[in-house]
């Protein structure tokens, strides 16, 4: 009435062989086929949307970077990075392995994971608000939320348009550029929602700063 019942050992051997066949199909053939097509049709995107200067990559447009002053003592892993007023600043980041490389470390992606009632997080937000307001020369109450919170990945390349606009005058002063030119550059970098309704409007800090460098 039933199929011939295989012994336990035969059962496990069948399982192993089927797993191996499926491993070849889904674990080797499938990713290789996707890679082949991706590299042929969308090489720029498949390789991380790299931004190049004189054919040397300086960034991935998708990953945030630090725009900090040189360290006073490069050998000291505990020294905090200080923001460089000549650049637009990204959001705070938790992707910091604590080994001196600073945040925005793509080998250490992640969030702070601090809870909504955590006293350390509340205190950190307050400190960031005061620091950002003093740095940009604005009223602390107007500093937007993204400027005082760390992102989920720690690699968020984007800031809100409000935070970018807040920084424009400070960047213009530090670079001795006309304020209008820097503001115009910010507006040119404001990206709306995908298809008009997907996600949030944002400004890509890496692309903005890369174009800023070419302004002089």
């Amino acid at each position: 009435m039933l199929l011939h019942l295989p012994s336990t050992a035969r059962q496990y051997l069948s399982a192993l062989r089927i797993l191996l066949v499926l491993t070849v199909l889904t674990g080797i053939v499938y990713p290789l086929a996707v890679t082949g097509i991706a590299q042929a049709v969308f090489p720029h995107r498949a390789n991380g949307s790299l931004i190049e200067d004189h054919s040397r990559p300086v960034a991935s447009a998708l990953l945030g970077q630090n725009f900090a002053l040189p360290k006073r003592n490069p050998a000291d892993p505990a020294e905090q990075l200080r923001p460089d007023p000549r650049w637009f600043q990204p959001r705070p980041s938790s992707a910091d392995a604590g080994k001196g490389a600073g945040p925005y470390d793509p080998t250490y992606s992640g969030a702070s994971n601090l809870g909504p009632t955590d006293p350390d997080l509340v205190a950190a937000v307050g400190r960031r608000r005061a620091a950002v307001a003093a740095f940009d020369g604005v009223d602390p109450r107007t500093v937007p939320a993204d400027a005082v919170t760390a992102s989920g990945s720690g690699l968020d390349p984007d800031i809100s348009p409000a935070y970018a606009r807040e920084q424009a005058d400070r960047v213009a002063r530090a670079r001795r550029l006309p304020s209008g030119r820097v503001r115009g550059l910010v507006e040119a970098h404001v990206e709306g929602r995908g298809l008009g309704f997907l996600g949030e409007p944002h400004v890509n800090v890496v692309e903005l700063n890369h174009d800023l460098a070419s302004l002089g």
């Binding site: 969030a111 909504p116 006293p119 937000v125 939320a145 760390a150 949030e200």
Partner: peptide, 19 residues
């Protein structure tokens, strides 16, 4: 929540492009 109140939005742990 206290952290959201301090920041003016629940953006801790969230990406700007998603909101």
């Amino acid at each position: 929540s206290p952290a959201g109140h301090a920041a003016g939005g629940m953006m801790e742990g969230k990406e700007q492009r998603f909101g």
